[in-house]
């Protein structure tokens, strides 16, 4: 049941990225190019549209004891903002600005975007593995 829900959610997420054209990094860069003269506001509408059902879902989740197919809802973050959060977000932002891909759209463009997308996703996964290895190394000490 959980696997079916996850698959439907993934398909719906991918559909949203295609319909909004956020699968295309050029559109994302056109949003990020705030001072460019021909600013493309689409990403703001995508974010706004996504926040509506999700805000309702959080409200609904507070009235439910359990998810439909799970044992608990996610806890609020255990700690406040810290340097790791800001440094990580800044690194992510830099990479996002370089190419126009964040993780979701990059994955969604894998089958249709050709070699550049394959290279980007491979590098992205390498970055994640690098972080994982670094965490394992620092935790061992």
């Amino acid at each position: 049941m959980r696997i079916v829900i996850a698959l439907i959610s993934g398909l719906l997420f991918g559909l949203g990225l295609v319909v909004s054209n956020m699968i295309n990094p050029d559109r994302v860069l056109a949003f990020l190019d705030v001072a460019g003269g021909s600013w493309d506001p689409t990403l703001a509408f995508v974010m706004g549209g996504a926040l509506i059902p999700m805000a309702l879902a959080w409200i609904w989740s507070r009235r439910q004891a359990y998810p439909f197919a799970g044992s608990a809802f996610p806890e609020p973050p255990r700690f406040g903002p810290d340097l790791r959060l800001v440094a990580g977000a800044a690194m992510f932002g830099a990479g996002w600005g370089l190419v126009g891909f964040c993780p979701g759209p990059a994955l969604s463009a894998l089958t249709l975007g050709g070699t550049p997308v394959l290279i980007f996703v491979a590098a992205m996964i390498a970055g994640m593995v690098l972080h994982l290895l670094l965490m394992l190394m620092t935790h061992r000490r």
């Binding site: 719906l12 054209n21 549209g49 996504a50 879902a57």
Partner: peptide, 17 residues
Amino acid sequence: GGLFIGAASALFLLGLG
């Protein structure tokens, strides 16, 4: 498209927690 993305995230939260 954003509404679809939000619905997908809502399903993930309410379905799987």
